[in-house]
């Protein structure tokens, strides 16, 4: 089999494996990519990320829901763990080198949305500083300053916990107005995001993934010169 045909076949297996949350299939295809000396970054972006685009469509059509997204994420990580060490530095030379600080605000221990977004940032090549859950508000500011991250992503699942995000936005913007702040969680509406001074928002784990998938989709198109 020619190299290009093999590449296409393995990319399809990666994509299908993610869509069908088949961790074994993804891991197997990822190992073949490495063994055959094919591009790891190419496999991530045009195999697994392409699969996540399909997953996003299925979520949009109400065919997939959060349990399915989580299983797709597991499958994606099964491949990402294998492929990431093999990404060549020249692959990343012209690509995103951003950093993001993320976490669930103090008072909230729900981190599904945050973890899904983390995955998509990692796929896109960002360096992710994950502070975990129930994070003291000052910690976000400290970490942003320490890492000089361009993005801070905050998550809160309930009305009863989202007010902490407002304080973080204020503290970070006071120190560095150029930092982009994204809010996520069920109680976060456009009004709330505006009121809190955030730059972007998503109101559910699925919506957040959708936004992240769009971001990666744009990145893929850019790379293809479209």
């Amino acid at each position: 089999m020619g190299k290009e045909k093999l590449r296409e076949e393995l990319l399809k297996e990666l994509s299908d494996g993610v869509v069908n949350f088949d961790e074994d299939k993804v891991a197997e295809a990822a190992k073949r990519i490495v063994e055959e000396g094919l591009g790891a970054y190419d496999a991530i972006m045009n195999g697994m990320a392409a699969g996540m685009e399909i997953v996003g469509d299925l979520y949009d059509k109400h065919e997939y829901f959060v349990p399915e997204l989580l299983l797709c994420a597991d499958a994606l990580y099964a491949g990402l763990d294998i492929l990431r060490p093999h990404i060549k530095s020249e692959d990343l030379a012209d690509r995103v080198k951003g950093q993001v600080v993320m976490g669930t605000v103090q008072g909230d221990v729900h981190d599904i949305g945050k973890n899904l977004i983390k995955m998509m940032f990692e796929v896109a090549g960002f360096t992710v500083h994950d502070l975990g859950r129930d994070v003291p508000l000052e910690k976000f500011v400290e970490e942003q300053v320490r890492t000089d991250s361009e993005i801070v992503a905050l998550s809160a699942m309930m009305t009863t916990t989202m007010m902490g995000m407002k304080k973080v936005v204020e503290m970070i913007k006071a120190k560095n107005p150029d930092v982009m702040i994204m809010l996520g969680g069920a109680p976060v509406t456009k009004d709330v995001a505006t009121l809190f001074g955030a730059d972007g928002y998503a109101e559910s784990a699925g919506n957040a993934v959708q936004e992240a998938i769009k971001m990666i989709s744009r990145l893929r198109k850019l790379e293809k010169g479209q």
Binding site: H62, F65, V66, P67, E203, S204, A205
Partner: peptide, 9 residues
Amino acid sequence: GSDLLSPRM
């Protein structure tokens, strides 16, 4: 809700 679980579920 259906932002988490499917109606079938």
